[in-house]
Design a binder for these strands. Structure first.
Lengths: 146, 146
DNA sequence: TGGCTAGTGTTGGTCACACCAACATTGGCG
DNA sequence: CGCCAATGTTGGTGTGACCAACACTAGCCA
């Protein structure tokens, strides 16, 4: 009954940002159920895929600001999901390492995320789902040049 | 060179939320150049399309929380883009009305947004653009039931 | 060798957006 | 009439994305 202005609904920027709102809520709820949030997942994923890394590297790979990596790693350390040790070669640099518990947490979060995809895309046919993913990937790539 | 973990890039929820980050930045920059922000546009658009409304109505139509409508309308009043008068029929209710300056501001923001769509979707062929819009609309509709 | 520059970790802020709880007030309905 | 729903408002929370500044280190190059 309460209609949204057409100026909004017909613009891709509205569709994307509003759908992102719902996606973030689903992700947030899922991650909350395992005591985590988005930044944690990104960092655990990067550590699992590329191995131990400095905080600056993590920030670049995860698209997280250096300063925000500090806080997230602090929390992950407190939960025992990563270790932070000074890099012996590089004086100032830290080496962040995934722990066994961290890998298990990552698996839990993966399961949560898989469920989220289904909730998010709902009854979208597999073909449309693939098309959507392809188009989004293509557009996003043009905004992440380097 | 700095690769993003596949776990992220292959998931639609990541694609949508990350693309939304870029969309928000484009919209933010554009709106900033005319001294406004997202909430302002939504409210001006709703007033233009449906005429004067109460703040609660605006909130429902624009997907903005009641409490946030208060602040946004305050700002719009201060800029002279809307008028807020007590509803004569309804004691507690306010009637928010678009002014001439508000309508002009809305047109400015419309132009900004049109440019943003091009920047956002880049060189996506018209057909793909339409497909993307259709799919996004469809998925979003399932998350906005009523 | 000395000095500058780039990179690193850290602190401490800002902003938009979304959302929630509480409160006083008011209208309308049973 | 009395209760419930709706309204406007205040004040607070959380995430995610940034930015500026600082101290320190490494590496380069003149």
């Amino acid at each position: 009954m309460e209609e949204i202005p057409e100026r909004l609904t017909e613009r891709p920027s509205w569709l994307i940002t509003q759908l992102a709102v719902h996606a973030r809520k689903l992700v947030f709820d899922g991650f909350t159920s395992v005591g985590a949030r988005g930044y944690h997942y990104r960092i655990l994923a990067a550590l699992h895929e590329y191995g131990p890394a400095s905080q600056a590297e993590l920030g670049r790979r995860c698209r997280i600001d250096r300063s925000d990596v500090v806080a997230a790693v602090n929390e992950l350390v407190a939960q025992g999901f990563v270790d932070r040790t000074p890099d012996p070669d590089h004086g100032r640099r830290n080496k962040v390492t995934l722990t066994g518990a961290g890998a298990r947490q990552l698996r839990r979060m993966d399961k949560v995320l898989d469920q989220v995809q289904d909730d998010l895309l709902g009854p979208l046919p597999a073909e449309d789902r693939q098309t959507l993913t392809r188009l989004l990937t293509h557009v996003l790539a043009r905004h992440e040049p380097r």
